[in-house]
Design a protein around this nucleic acid. Structure first.
Lengths: 144, 144
DNA sequence: TTGACAAATGCAACCCCGTTGCAATACAAT
DNA sequence: ATTGTATTGCAACGGGGTTGCATTTGTCAA
C-alpha cells in the first residue's frame, strides 16, 4: 500500500524526496490518528529530520491534491490530515490533550437522516460530525 | 429580552458600558447568524464605534461566562458566538462567503443515535454537527 | 456634584497557524 | 556529469487570538 503510493507518485512524474517519503511513512504508521501540520513536523524531528514549516504545509497540500490524504476538521480549528483510504467517518477530539481519533459509525441511519434536514437553501456538499470529550489516557483515574 | 439581559448584568454588579451594550445589541439583531470576533468588530465599526480587538475578545469571553452567548464551531476553525437562548442545534457554513446559519434538526432521532456510537473509551461531553455548502446568496445562478 | 474604587478599555507586544515570493538545492533522466 | 524542473528553505507577512500593564470610565456613596 505504501509502496504503491510511492510508485504512483513517481509514475506521475513527481519526485520521491526524503521528506516526502518520510511524511508518507508517518501517515501509514499513524493510520487512525489524523495529524496536523505542527504535529507532523514534530514527528519528523523525532526522526532527526528538520523540515521547514513551509515545506510541511506545501507537502500536505500536495498529498491532498494527489488524493493520498484528506483534510479533516476535528472541531478545534486546526487542520488535520489522514490517509484517504477509509470510508466516510467522523472524529472525536480530546479536550485535554487535543488527540483526535477516528470514529466509525457502523450500523446507524445517521447519514440517511442527515439528508432530511432542512438546510436553508444551501447546496450541501458535505458535513462533519465531531465528538468532544476526554480520552482514556487523560482520565485514567476513575474517582476523579 | 435584551432589556432583561442588561438588567441582569447590572444586578450582578457589572457595568453597562457603551461597547458592551452595543455588542449585546448586535447579537440580538443577528439572532440566527453566529458572529466571530472580527465580524463583531466590523459590525461595531459600521456603527462608528471602534473597539480594540482585545476588548472584543474579552467581552466575548465575559458574555460567554455570563451565559448570555455561547461559542460555536462551524467547522472552519474560527470561533463564533450566538445568543444562548436556542436549544441544541447545528450549523451550516458557506464555503464561499463563510456565512454561518443555524440548522434546527426537528424530528429526527439523531441525538439518540449518537448515544449508541462506539466512542473508543472517551468520556464524551458533547458533539458538533456541521454542514458545508454554498449558500443561496453565493449560488443565485441555476445554470452554474 | 464630586470623589473614589473597581470594572472596563486601549495599547503594545507577543504567540501560533498558515501563506507567499524568491532564491537555493536536489532529484532523476539523459 | 549535466541539465531542467520539482522541491526546499528562508524571510517576511497576515489573521486570529492572548497577556501585562497603564489609562479611562461607570457606578455608587458621601
Amino acid at each position: 500500500m505504501r509502496q504503491q503510493t510511492l510508485e504512483a507518485l513517481k509514475d506521475k512524474g513527481f519526485r520521491l524526496t526524503k521528506i516526502r517519503k518520510l511524511i508518507i511513512d508517518v501517515f501509514f504508521s499513524n493510520a487512525d490518528a489524523p495529524i496536523s501540520a505542527p504535529e507532523l513536523r514534530t514527528h519528523l524531528l523525532a526522526l532527526d529530520v528538520k523540515a521547514n514549516k513551509t515545506t510541511i504545509y506545501r507537502e500536505l497540500d500536495f498529498l491532498s491534491a494527489q488524493g493520498i490524504i484528506v483534510e479533516i476538521n476535528a472541531g478545534d480549528g486546526k487542520k488535520r490530515y489522514e490517509l484517504d483510504r477509509f470510508g466516510h467517518h467522523h472524529h472525536i477530539l480530546c479536550l485535554r490533550c487535543s488527540a483526535v481519533e477516528c470514529v466509525a459509525i457502523e450500523d446507524c441511519a445517521l447519514e440517511e437522516q442527515l439528508s432530511r434536514v432542512d438546510l436553508k437553501n444551501f447546496k450541501v456538499t458535505g458535513h462533519a460530525l465531531n465528538f468532544f470529550g476526554i480520552c482514556a489516557g487523560c482520565s485514567p483515574c476513575t474517582e476523579c
